[in-house]
């Protein structure tokens, strides 16, 4: 009945290690700065594979789609990128945070 040595079901970094062991190519997204009411704290992670599968979160689901698309590019290109997301109504087509906050997300290749 030991829970101490098991990887919790929603452990993003544990999932990342398991995916690497399967030979999948990955990117790691990290919230490095937040302003105002951001849904996930600084340090939160999202791990993404080359096919766009992902685990974790950097927002409440508002900008994950955009981060995943960038991450797939980063896996190919190798260079880390800094993304910034603000409120949703700046331009009609841009994704954003409905809560009114702003976040900065760093996306880098993993492994």
């Amino acid at each position: 009945m030991s829970a101490a040595n098991e990887t919790p079901a929603l452990d993003v970094l544990g999932t990342a290690e398991a995916w690497l062991a399967e030979g999948r190519r990955l990117a790691l997204a990290t919230v490095v700065e937040t302003w105002g009411s951001a849904p996930r704290p600084t340090g939160s992670h999202l791990v993404i594979d080359a096919d766009g599968n992902f685990e974790g979160s950097v927002s409440g689901g508002c900008v994950e789609g955009a981060v995943v698309a960038e991450a797939v590019d980063v896996i190919e290109a190798g260079e880390p990128r800094m993304l910034e997301f603000g409120v949703a109504d700046e331009t009609a087509w841009r994704v954003g945070l409905s809560c009114g906050g702003r976040i900065r997300v760093r996306v880098e290749r993993l492994g």
Partner: peptide, 14 residues
């Protein structure tokens, strides 16, 4: 992030 860094980090977390 290098794989070695991730593995070392997860070892500390475990």
């Amino acid at each position: 992030m290098e794989r070695a860094v991730l593995e070392a980090l997860n070892a500390e977390r475990r």
